[in-house]
Amino acid sequence: MSQSQGVAMTDRSQDVVSSDPPSPELLLALVEGQQRRTEHLTTPDPRVMYGTWGVVWFAGHLLLFLGGLADPLLPLSAALAVFFGMLVVGNAVVGVELVRAFHGLRGDSRRFGILYGLTWPIGMTAVSLVVVAAGAHGLPDPLAGMLFATLPAVLTGVLLMAGAALWDSRVDFGLGCWFAVLGTASAFTSPPTTNLLLSLLGGGVLLVAALVAALRRSGRPRGEG
């Protein structure tokens, strides 16, 4: 807990009764601490959001890579099953985090947050089903596998950039650009190399973003969070 947060918490709810008036510095620190606390508790935690999808992308695509090798370390079907399971768990974790952040709130911020949050699973499901349909139309498995991996990466980039525009976040815009480039570039490779790239350069970057968010929140008195 930062010093100013400590001020906010220890002063509790009493009026100013001390004989010494609080200094403007202390009052501003009180305000900043409370504003930071409010922002942290009423917005989705970036450590949870980046961290959850970082783990899903990193571990999920790594498993698909290992299952897609010429001499696979596990059956590809098993890797796919685990990957889908992780996607379900990831959506559940993020859903719980959104409920935690927005409970007890009403208004535009909550509505925009929920609509934006729903855009992700709907968009990802739609893109994945298009690839499944392409497979049903006779698209060869390696091509379907490549699209199944890269289209969600491109969509992730687009959604991150759109969110960055809504909430004025340079970090998310940078991440969005990165995923758009990564998704496009990895489309020029074939599975399982595609999956290895998305694991290390997609999931890995998200895990770094989660780590940076954690460091900013714990270390700096005025982090963006």
Binding site: S13, Q14, P22, L27, Q34, L105, S109, R110
Partner: peptide
Amino acid sequence: QARLRVMATLSTLGPGDQ
């Protein structure tokens, strides 16, 4: 200080948010 913290909290929420 108590009301200052209340105002700091409410002002951090978006315009029109309850």
